[in-house]
């Protein structure tokens, strides 16, 4: 098989989202405005009536790809859109909030979900990032590796996906460990 070394130009096809998540709103007008903003930003979303178990505010919700929730949350903050919360359509609905810590001789590795961030115990610099599978992770890794924990950008501020959110949790824990150790 040979693809002939081509550069391909294709347009994104519009498909009905199989979402995985719901954005919930207090007011109908917030939901309608949010849908407009997300569509303009090229997110594949849909206004729906939330199932009774998820109903919190108004009778409109937006189906989203659950993975994209941090990028969407940031866009809403920039545009001043109010929303109540994001809920997954299946499962307990809680993001993992536990971490595991592994010690090496001169480094500490923190695991949060599927992400692992390792920092230098003596200098507080980020040595490596591993795990994950979403497309922002290699980009975030390149942005963080070699930087001091205190100076590194927060994955939640520049990433878009749930993997980035887990990376952010690991970075926060690394920073707390580093600060505790430097002050003790």
């Amino acid at each position: 098989m040979n693809l002939g070394g081509k550069v391909m130009v294709l347009k994104k096809a519009k498909v009905k989202a199989e979402s995985g998540g719901l954005l919930l709103f207090e007011k109908v007008e917030d939901a309608v405005r949010a849908e407009e903003i997300l569509s303009e930003a090229d997110y594949t979303v849909r206004l729906v009536a939330p199932p009774p178990t998820f109903r919190m505010g108004c009778d409109l919700a937006i189906e989203i790809n659950l993975v994209e929730q941090i990028g969407i949350g940031r866009l809403f903050r920039e545009k001043g859109v109010n929303y109540l919360k994001v809920v997954p359509l299946k499962g307990a609905g809680r993001l993992l909030d536990v971490v595991k810590v592994t010690e090496f001789k001169d480094a500490t590795m923190v695991k949060a979900g599927n992400m692992k961030v390792t920092f230098d115990k003596n200098k507080g610099t980020i040595l490596n990032v591993s795990g994950g599978g979403c497309p922002d992770i290699p980009y975030l890794s390149a942005s963080l590796i070699g930087k001091k924990l205190s100076d590194a950008p927060r994955p939640k501020d520049i990433g878009f996906t749930l993997c980035a959110m887990m990376m952010d949790r690991a970075v926060v824990e690394c920073l707390e460990l580093w600060r505790k150790r430097s002050t003790s």
Partner: peptide, 9 residues
């Protein structure tokens, strides 16, 4: 139930 590892039990 999890649709992403961030939501595992």
């Amino acid at each position: 139930d999890a649709s992403h590892p961030a939501y595992i039990n």
